[in-house]
Write a protein that binds this DNA or RNA. Structure first.
Lengths: 330, 330
DNA sequence: TTGAAAGCGCTAACAA
DNA sequence: TTGTTAGCGCTTTCAA
């Protein structure tokens, strides 16, 4: 009595037909005479047969699985992306294989190479320099990339960070802020875009930007940077953070230092993570539409897999979300 | 000129050796004479050969991939678990295949069945009733389960929710709270344990528990439930929430209704998600050690896969984290 | 409508 | 040290 899982051959033998027949029937590739179909159906149920996706994939070359590589699963921005991507994949019968590169550019390549052979396509969020990702294109797998690329011709989904930053800055200026600072994260490709948007808007009003650079896009880092930002000769009237996590950390540390928000300083971030809603004051932010980005990326990937042509670049418009962390400076 | 990816046969032919030789060499299963090794190495580089993990897995029966099924990727409790599990898997050369069942018990079964054939083992967080998960054991794959089970004999990692709840309640009583309420989530298996711990402690002090039941373990739901909890004839002096997300939502809504925290009501949750640190007041919580749970589960799973015996149950001790959302009632 | 047979890319005895 | 050979579980012509 062999305990192991039944194969298509076991089914074929028990049903008195050929494996080819079973295969075609299981995949709905062909209809058979009622008696044959009934027997097969019965035997499958009896044996508890289920096809081996590995063997199936090896032959067909399709795995019905897509890879999604993100930078940090504990950042709500990325989990929202996953949420959106997951929903679309699910609806199309695909399983998402998630890889968390943990903000470590060196880990990306081996992880993605291992992943690439197991999936029909991949969506990649990368911290690598553009010059270092040429190999991605050589993996002969459909691929969608997050974020603007200047050289590479990859299908891409990107938020308009420049515009989002401009909108936010414009609003801060309207509120009467003049000394505006940026707590950035220069390791990210998007940092430049955001800073560019801010600077452009400030320049248009004859203002200059004071820039601080964080070493991680996290709340902890926001906390850490707070003292050097707030305890100089003259602290900024408004601070734009690279993302909401940093803003959250900064706000907490600033309050601990005795500053009142937004009276002493206005604070804003990017991403519109749900937790920006639960701080006091609630966080003003630029909603980059994370979930929608995930949806768009997965739709683009599945289209590419199916061979349906799509635009190379999908741009998602950001939305400014005003909350209490920014206020008029009168 | 065939554009397709090179197989082991291409390498063998080009190197003038047998496929077996290439296979063994690639897998480091055996050493060969220097000239042979050099040629193979060179040819592999030239052709850009990389072995097909699918074919490999089909034969060896091992995929070097493990599945991890969670209830909601946007809940930081689960992302911490993933973080811990991921780290361990990575260190052992395994890739984690993540599945988000989105708090939908019906989706679990098909998702897990599809997953089970592609991985060497699985870690499962389930919202299903214990009576409905017997099939899990029949999937002939190593499996680790999160949460206490009463009947099933599965390897399990669980936090001591009962004790955590007891500790928290005890502290609240010490702080002088008498009218204590619980905002639960009865769909979760852990809800009972938490409520049990609270009740036991209250009973020991001759107190009774007032219970509200939420329909989702989310911040939104916490917000929604707030008015019915706070705007009755007499509102509780302290509220324990099923998790931090609900607590966050509740706190925000309560403050919006004009209540001062913790002066009017103390609030506490479970999980110690990082965002409990960034609210005002910061959230008192029971740290269930999410990341450690992920680590423990993955270690247990990999041990099971390797055939190393482990204890059936790993229990993780919770820690009470006191912050400003709970205060003395004098 | 059904089946025989030839693989998919790789590994694992077993030989040489 | 190296090669031969027989599959893993499945799909897919092609023939019956």
């Amino acid at each position: 009595m062999k305990k192991s899982v039944p194969t298509i051959r076991d089914v074929a033998a028990a049903a008195g037909v050929s494996t080819a027949t079973v295969s075609k029937f299981v995949n709905g590739a062909q209809r058979f005479s009622p008696p044959v179909e009934d027997t097969i159906k019965r035997v499958i149920a009896e044996l508890g047969y289920r096809s081996n996706p590995l063997a199936q994939s090896m032959i067909t070359g399709r795995t019905k699985t897509v890879g999604l590589s993100i930078l940090d699963i504990t950042n709500p921005h990325f989990t929202s992306i996953v949420k959106g991507a997951n929903r679309v994949a699910q609806a199309h019968g695909y399983t998402v294989l998630l890889v968390d590169t943990e903000e470590n550019p060196e880990r990306e390549r081996p992880l993605l190479e291992a992943l690439s052979r197991r999936v029909d396509g991949m969506i990649v969020f990368s911290r690598m320099q553009e010059k270092d990702i040429g190999w991605l294109t050589e993996m002969d797998r459909p691929l969608v990339f997050f974020g603007r690329l200047s050289q590479l011709e990859l299908p891409t989904v990107a938020s308009d960070d420049h515009r989002g930053a401009y909108m936010l800055t414009r609003h801060l200026i309207t509120q009467g802020h003049r000394r505006i600072a940026y707590l950035g994260f220069s390791k990210s490709r998007r940092d430049e875009e955001r800073m560019g948007g801010i600077k452009e808007c400030l320049a248009a009003h004859g203002l200059e930007l004071c820039v601080y650079d964080g070493s991680a896009p996290s709340a902890i880092e926001g906390e850490r940077m707070c003292s050097s930002i707030m305890l100089g000769a003259e602290h900024p009237e408004a601070l734009i953070c690279y993302n909401d996590l940093m803003a959250l950390g900064f706000m907490k540390a600033a309050q601990t230092l005795g500053f009142r928000l937004p009276a002493d300083i206005s604070v804003a971030g990017f991403d519109n993570i749900q937790f920006g809603n639960y701080t006091s004051p609630a966080l003003t932010t630029v909603d980059l539409q994370s979930e929608r980005m995930g949806v768009a990326a997965m739709e683009k990937l599945l289209a590419t897999i199916d061979g349906t042509p799509t635009d190379r670049l999908t741009r998602i418009e950001p939305q400014l979300i005003l909350r209490a962390s920014t206020a008029n400076r009168n």
